[in-house]
Amino acid sequence: MMKKIGIILLQVGLIYLFLLLAIAIKNILSIPLPATIIGLILLFLALQLKLIKLAWIEQGGRFLMVQLLLFFIPSAVGIVNYDQLLSLDGLWVVLIILTSTAIVLAATGRVVERFGDQK
């Protein structure tokens, strides 16, 4: 149990290093992409170029992704400052999300179904 926690902590630390590296690169080269996306690309390249092994980060990565929703709670609690959502505006927001999501499902699904067929 302790060993597993240790491994996860170390691996999360290694992934965190990619974030720090991405922030440094972003600042030095002033790339207009968010550091997280630069970090994602760096981690992918490091794996692809065999600079690091999947086993070095796999458990830490799985931990971060499985627990992802937990990390949003402190931010989500901030919703309490927006009671406007309890008014009619809240209903409009839900209606907009419903309609737009239906359009996105339809557009993406149809396009992929159409182009996927030609393979």
Partner: peptide, 13 residues
């Protein structure tokens, strides 16, 4: 909250 950024990077896996 600070864990969100490394979790995003883990999407490379």
């Amino acid at each position: 909250t600070n864990m969100i950024a490394p979790a995003t990077i883990a999407f490379a896996i």
